[in-house]
Design a protein around this nucleic acid. Structure first.
Lengths: 250, 250
DNA sequence: ATAGAATCGGAACCCACGTCCCGTTTCGAT
DNA sequence: ATCGAAACGGGACGTGGGTTCCGATTCTAT
């Protein structure tokens, strides 16, 4: 979304609004943030206007629809998460960082019903924002995998799905389940060397034959562009052993 | 739920309805089942009437409200799950049974949006039905725990929450995640001896001092009614070792 | 101070939905 | 075949919520 090119005096980010308009816009945004946070997308627009102390017409002067207003309140929260993830991209102990980050995102999102609604897909993703988050989280995930803190065969899609699941559970858990308990449980399910159940392979992996032939996890791509057959480590060694055994009969 | 004792000619389950009424009731139920299954509680009542080929008035003749109709379509699915769980209560290999049962419930529920809505709490629980399911599942869980296939410190509340989380994830997972993959991941998180993250203790356990003092899991209750201090096995042994060490100094 | 434009407020509009009502139709006992 | 009661259909009603409209108000350049 390129900003319109502007004549000589570059307009400040709040582009030449009348003072009352600028103030009201801010009031509406604030009211929307707190209302959506408490009640999610279901809060009526009139309620937001009431809280902001303006009429509904004023809300519509600043935002073309309820959804646009909702987006505006949610997007900056997600961007905050993204920024944090980017900052952590070079931190020590990538494993611990990854898990702490996931837990924090869940913890911070759970009490924000609007954010939950957005993450759980009540909304078409805003272009750029979701991708940014996803990419930043991918970096944390891959570093944690390189550090052998996360099993190699989970993908960023798995983690995103897990994140939503955590939110859903932590939101709906009754008083009989401690906060964070489900998240802890789910985080542990990502750790390596602990899986018993065979994981169904993700379709992308199956479709274009990418991914480790043994565990389905991500593989290195050589300088020639050809992906490796195994994800390295245990899988390759096991494959070699089995091929050797096959050669020697039995 | 004992059936009412009945006078000499036992009334058939469909109590003396005119033939057209009985037929229409069945049509409505069928239409409602398929409509709720596809679109969840959000489907308009008029749509159900249309599918059934009746007017909305007819629907209201048979069911006092939309919610009552919804309940009627959902309750028998849940009862089906409950019955299955009861049948499995004495099966061999309780561990495998437990995990297979969980996966099956998820698999069967995921394509039923109405059932998901109900399980995720869009509805006050129908008295008896939810409890029945919960109790039947408790039996499977406890047997799996006794067989050391499930970690001792998870409660039935945890499992119910996990179940909802699985549903949520499997429903919303994009095409990049294979069906059943999240469920497999979550099942593994229940297995014993694999946890790294310390699980926050559930409030009930914390409140009345019930549960294993080491891991928070369920404990045996002796014939005197006094609950044991540890859940048995590893926890008690570790506690004994530590107490011994404390006695000998150091 | 004034004028004109930007902005405001909230009533009015529209639509979707759950529920109710009542004139009409259908059933089944006689 | 007939009649009374049961059941039917679908229009009417009320509600709630998003959006639009327009006369009233407020700001700011002059």
């Amino acid at each position: 979304m390129a900003r319109r090119r502007s004549p000589s005096p570059p307009p400040p980010l709040a582009p030449s609004l009348r003072s009352d308009a600028r103030r009201n816009r801010e009031l509406v945004l604030q009211a929307a943030r707190s209302a959506f946070e408490e009640a999610g997308l279901a809060v009526p627009l009139g309620e937001i206007a009431r809280r902001a102390g303006v009429g509904t017409g004023t809300v519509y002067r600043h935002f073309p629809s309820k959804e646009a207003l909702f987006r505006a309140t949610v997007v900056d929260r997600v961007r905050l998460f993204t920024d944090t993830a980017r900052e952590l991209a070079h931190a020590d102990d990538p494993g611990a960082v990854f898990f702490r980050y996931l837990s924090a995102v869940v913890r911070l999102s759970v009490r924000n019903k609007g954010l939950c609604d957005a993450l759980e897909g009540s909304l078409e993703p805003s272009p750029g924002v979701e991708e940014g988050f996803r990419e930043a989280l991918t970096v944390l995930l891959e570093r944690a995998q390189q550090a052998a803190a996360v099993r190699k065969d989970v993908t960023i899609d798995d983690v995103m799905a897990l994140l939503m699941g955590c939110l859903s559970m932590e939101q709906r858990r009754g008083p009989a389940v401690a906060p964070g308990r489900m998240t802890a449980l789910l985080c542990d399910s990502l750790r390596p060397g602990r899986h018993v159940t065979k994981l169904p392979q993700n379709p992308a992996v199956r479709r274009n034959e990418t991914g480790c032939a043994a565990c389905g996890g991500p593989v290195r791509v050589s300088r020639t562009g050809r992906p490796a057959r195994y994800c390295g480590g245990a899988c390759r060694q096991r494959a070699h052993r089995e091929r050797a055994r096959a050669r020697t009969g039995t």
